[in-house]
Design a binder for these strands. Sequence first.
DNA 1: CGGGTTTGACCGGCGC
DNA 2: GCGCCGGTCAAACCCG
Length: 266
Amino acid sequence: MANDEGENKVYQQYDPFVYNQLDMNRTILQQQPSLDPAFMSFTNFFDTSLEYNSVWRALDVSCSSSELISPVDDMSKKKASNSSVSSSSDEAAPAAEDDSVKSKKEEKRKKQNAAQKKEKREREPRFAFLTKTEIDQLEDGYRWRKYGQKAVKNSPYPRSYYRCTSQKCVVKKRVERSYQDPSLVITTYEGQHIHHCPATLRGHLSPFHASAPSSGPALPQELFSHLLSKNCQTDPASMMYQNLNLQQHLQMPDHYSLLQDLFTQK
DNA sequence: CGGGTTTGACCGGCGC
DNA sequence: GCGCCGGTCAAACCCG
């Protein structure tokens, strides 16, 4: 229907990545003849998800070999851009102390950028949640440090950038409110936690699920953080357990809607 | 004082 | 080449 198309467009506008990912997931679903994509829920998707690794393939749009860039090309490109900058800054360095401090800072920054670029080549899997809530700051069991906020084009709502506060854990998330439906919060996770969820370790309960048992993740966000943790990845049994949890969660009265809503739109 | 947030500046990618 | 935009940095600030 036109309505459906409209909604799809909405998602494409504010986050092409989410949209593409959904489209891809739909494609995957539709490749399974026994499943009716029209009624495929997010839970079912995981439940019926073929072999273990296919889940990750399905969620990870970034690891396709077609996106791999030859390391040689990459390095030469980087060297070219770096040398042009660093040589000029090296020459300018003795000019004044202010300049030298500045150039040092710049160099440091360049190095960091280069490191980031390298990381970007091996892009982390990303996926998004739609959460129906009035609350901007969603509890997902992990501790996050905000490192940026940006205005989103065509949206009155800003996008916030968070990093996991745990040492050496490079997981990031972005949080923004849908301008089409301000009751929806879009949370995009990137990366895999290399540690346990502090909330479950400490027996801490978020205000959202104070009545829920603390034996596992009760929020979709938290669950997915768990699903993406190294622990779960290396333990298919744990994965199945988490799927069960997800099912249980979805039977609960929800103020959360996952991307499953979007799976049913076509 | 340590840890988190805010916010303006900066950078790189991309489309025109 | 230029401008736009998303993502990140880091100094300043805030708070317990």
